[in-house]
């Protein structure tokens, strides 16, 4: 990838971060950490292999919908005005994704169900011999604790779903703390490989690396997973040490600092 393209991906990721800060700002708290950790994943996906007219997009953890929304203006789907109603009373842009959530084809607040939905989409494409449709599913590392994910992973490999690509945000964050302090889900790549998947492990904040892994994943004849090692505070140096990444609290002063930091980088 040439340097200019890498820079564009980085700027896209920072636009996601900036919009996410503005979306949670009126609430004083929210799923900002998820946007910070998955920003490069969405930037690379939306700039590269995802074709909105023929592919399917699943956002398995419903609270990650903030990232999809924050990325959507770059696809010309949502406006900044739409995003300003995020999570407010009466808004259809609920903070935890619902059936009304735009941008994605499927999301669910009850975790661990999205991969099965993606497998259903991929199965439909198989049954209709539609070889030109890809299914992308964002899932989180905490979701790997749910057994249903592995039911779906086994079934996808059995049916040789080469059109199915998982973007796994391994941010080591769940409600009660670091995933690694609660359940040992490692070795993640070896688990997926042993289930018959192609696994590509990358630094999830290296936009170029994420993009390259996605390109490899799309070319696979097996279902594939891009395991992005990420952090829920990445890209915002103003966040305090020890911020709760799952549900970040952000004061008006911190909002101002965050916006200033991101706008300076985007200037």
């Amino acid at each position: 990838m040439i340097a200019g393209q890498t820079r564009e991906l980085e700027r896209f990721a920072d636009r996601i971060r900036l919009r996410a800060v503005k979306m949670v700002a009126p609430h004083g708290f929210g799923y900002l950490g998820q946007a910070l950790s998955s920003a490069e994943l969405f930037a690379a996906l939306f700039s590269g292999p995802y074709r909105r007219d023929r592919d399917k997009l699943v956002c398995s953890p419903g609270h990650y919908i903030i990232s999809a929304y924050a990325a959507a203006p770059d696809l010309g789907i949502l406006s900044e005005t739409d995003l300003s109603t995020y999570g407010q009373d009466g808004s259809s842009f609920e903070a935890v994704g619902t059936e009304r959530s735009p941008v994605v084809d499927l999301t669910c607040g009850s975790l661990g169900q999205g991969l099965s939905g993606a497998v259903g989409f991929a199965l439909s494409a198989q049954l209709r011999e539609n070889l030109d449709s890809r299914v992308f599913a964002l899932i989180s590392d905490g979701e790997l604790e749910e057994g249903q994910v592995w039911e779906a992973a086994m079934f996808a490999a059995h049916r040789k779903m080469g059109n199915l690509i998982v973007l796994l945000d391994a941010n080591d964050s769940q409600v009660d703390g670091p995933v690694s302090s609660i359940t040992t889900i490692e070795p993640i790549a070896a688990k997926w490989e042993s289930f018959g998947w192609a696994a590509f492990e990358v630094d999830g904040h290296d936009a170029d690396a994420v993009n390259h892994a996605l390109e490899l994943a799309v070319g696979e004849s097996r279902p594939s997973v891009v395991i992005a090692r990420t952090s829920t505070v990445h890209g915002l140096s103003c966040l305090p040490e020890g911020a709760d990444g799952h549900f970040i609290k952000i004061s008006p002063e911190l909002v101002d600092a965050a916006i200033a930091e991101l706008e300076a980088r985007l200037a």
Binding site: G117, G120, L123, G147, Q148, E151, A152, M154, F155
Partner: peptide, 22 residues
């Protein structure tokens, strides 16, 4: 489609299939 002994996956998969017009 034999979904095997994995009812959670079977049910969520069925929902997605229905979204596709099946």
């Amino acid at each position: 489609i034999n979904a095997g002994m994995a009812e959670a996956n079977m049910m969520s998969m069925a929902g997605a299939l229905a979204r596709c017009g099946h």
